[in-house]
Write a protein that binds this DNA or RNA. Sequence first.
RNA 1: GCGCAGGUGGCGGAGUGGUCAAUCGCAACAGACUGUAAAUCUGUCGCCCAUUGGGCUACGAAGGUUCGAAUCCUUCCCUGCGCA
Length: 397
Amino acid sequence: MGNSFRIESSTDGSLARAGVIETAHGAIETPAFIPVGTKATVKAVTPEALGTLRTQAVLANTYHLYLQPGPELLESAGGLGKFMGWHGPTMTDSGGFQVFSLGAAFGKRLSKFGNRKEESEKIEESLPLAKVDDEGVTFRSHRDGSEHRFTPERSIEIQHAIGADIIFAFDECPSPETDHDYQREAMERTHRWALRSLARHKELGEGSAGDQLLFGIVQGGRFEDLRRESAKAIGEMGFDGFGIGGTFLKEDMGNAVRWVNELLPKDKPRHLLGIGEPLDVLIAIENGCDTFDCVAPTRAGRTGTIYTGEGKINIGNAKFEKDFSALEVGCDCYTCKNFTRAYLHHLFDAHEMLAATLASIHNLRFIVRLVENAREAIVRGEFKKFSEEFLSRYIKI
RNA sequence: GCGCAGGUGGCGGAGUGGUCAAUCGCAACAGACUGUAAAUCUGUCGCCCAUUGGGCUACGAAGGUUCGAAUCCUUCCCUGCGCA
């Protein structure tokens, strides 16, 4: 596997860098925000619109596509991109995150970020749908309860069938509530799984056309020793790039990412998994990440939260009923150029499907543009200044 | 005019002597959402103070029975259906 990544510029004083990842379906100029299209669709947004808002790649999910419509179907369709009508680069997550979301997090209000305040609300216990052992993970389908088993090998096989340009090693994503001991155990297991993922990838000829890039995933939670150990181990295994996975406390994310990126090989791309609020993206870039995927822009958009330069607004609020200005004045997205806050308010109020589409388009464009601007700033050598200017305006309302 | 069925919080609709400021749904108001179990979830939702809690006014209106009434009785008003 030749190197498919080159750095165009990097800044002094931070780990931020601008580069290009070459894939079989085109280049990704980094840093880049990658929208999530779990089930081979970025919810509510057409591929055409994704192109217009200058999305560079889409990330789908192995677990979901495996359950529906199944890897065989995707393979006969000519691969993920062709199937979904998206002709740019694609990625698939390995299913490792579902170890968490269907496991420890199942039935609880738990996200990638831990809560420093123990909001110990009594949460009704529900049986997890995922169980980890050293060999792999046994899942129960969230759709029909049927039992399925993922191993690192199986995940890679499925990802080969799905055919995304960048695929990920199968990992265990532990809960933010787990302690150092368990984080170590999960990390070590993830390392073993990484080697197995890599081995299976090679056996299969590195992708059907030999052109799938495999990224290894760093774990270690919020613990510095584990993060560094994981970065070192995964970094030496010979992956085409890296994913930074796992969970942390909100305020520790920047550190966790920095610990890792100080040690990962500089000449390979680093993808921060599942991060994507505007502030977090800037922190990630500053600390050396090249790409990030996140459901936040689309999920928030679908549920009425709109990103603006001054922070997030909830468009359903009564105060927007007669606000005939754009969602964000000066925004170059389709939604802002053609519709008003009052109209979006009405669409949400009326539960119209177009609400989700227009809001998702805006939020995606907002964050894609933020990252585009960050890239330009890196190239100019002014990332720090750019970031500070953005932060000074972007207040959490 | 007679007969029957009804009148409950913004709306729909439970409740038919005490644990009822009143199930539930909708609407309203607000919040959350970070590798998507998500076009989802949570909270508030008579009025006034309060942290747990307390006070007040309420189930068409007015009287009455009862220790106690949204629930029982009387009269009145209104609505729907049927018959004249």
